[in-house]
């Protein structure tokens, strides 16, 4: 039961982008651990900027 709830929460977090920073950190540390990572706030601002620079919503 606990596992199911966990999986559900993970899915909801992935759907909403709630876990975006964690995924970014993981990837960043894997690729270039020597470089400083963006702070959560910087990352969030640049992420929404990217997301809304194209057609994000339809009619």
């Amino acid at each position: 039961m606990n596992q199911t709830l966990r999986a559900l929460l993970d899915t909801v977090r992935a759907l909403t982008g709630d876990d975006a920073y964690e995924r970014y950190l993981l990837r960043h540390q894997g690729l270039h651990p020597d470089l400083p990572a963006l702070t959560p706030s910087e990352f969030y601002a640049s992420e929404v900027e990217r997301r809304y620079s194209g057609v994000a919503r339809c009619c």
């Binding site: 899915t11 992935a14 970014y24 990837r27 992420e47 919503r57 339809c58 009619c59």
Partner: peptide
């Protein structure tokens, strides 16, 4: 590239895609 190109679970892509296409139309 960890940003716009990211392999994503198909149900998550489904959710994103549906949320994007379904507007007030």
């Amino acid at each position: 590239n960890g940003r716009d190109f990211v392999t994503t679970h198909r149900w998550v892509v489904f959710g994103h895609h549906f949320a994007a296409i379904a507007g007030p139309g």
